[in-house]
Amino acid sequence: MKLTLRIWRQAGPAEPGRMVAYEVPDANPDMSFLELLDVLNERLTLEGEDPVTFDHDCREGICGSCGVVINGQAHGPRALTTTCQLHVRSFSDGDVIDIEPWRSVAFGVLKDLMVDRSGLDRIIQAGGYISAPTGSAPEAHSTPVPKPIADSAFDNATCIGCGACVAACPNGSAMLFTSAKVAHLNSLPQGAPERASRVLNLVEAMDAEGFGGCTNTGECTNACPKGIPMDSIATLNREYLRASLGRK
């Protein structure tokens, strides 16, 4: 397959960037999208050019490291799929593919397609944890959790923190990410001690990072490779109102 990749090149955080076109004449349809970039980078290295910088780690869709905007869509055209799990066969021979970094004032571009997502880490630090005693694991049956709540908490816990929600949101909002933590931890008995403070601290940290506000466009959930649903955002709002009004 012959593909043309138009990639955002930016030498450093303060440098100006631009889209640069590269031809990949020998793309294999069975390559993953990151392997496509690997092939391009090997050639660029041999030619003495600076290879394209992009984040990646597990390459099996669970670490949340990779993530670029492909043809205007976070993680590309396939639903529920991270960039590393996207394959070249999702495109056609002769396609021109635009590859850009996540765009948000809270995600500064470090180099090319790599952005600084530590803002999401600081949100987690503000409340994405529970106060669990250390020592041996407690007997699982000592804290019963109804099945629907356990399922919903687990669905929200599948968030890999890739930042696609922020990248896809026209407002650059981190609402879906933050709501996944609230919907996960606030619904479980283990998260109950920090129920009120968690949501207030998470939202405060989210606002401090400069993320935009939520207008319920639903672009986030559409882009999310883990399918975190919009009702997690309703849950965040409900928990926030509850905590603000001081109900225990």
Binding site: W8, M19, V69, N71, G72, Q73, D98, E100, R103, S104, V105, A106, A168, P170, N171, G172, S173, G210, F211, G212, G213, T215, E219
Partner: peptide, 14 residues
Amino acid sequence: RDLKARPTKYSHHQ
């Protein structure tokens, strides 16, 4: 707030 959060638009329209 929302416009400030996305200062650089995508060159490929979403």
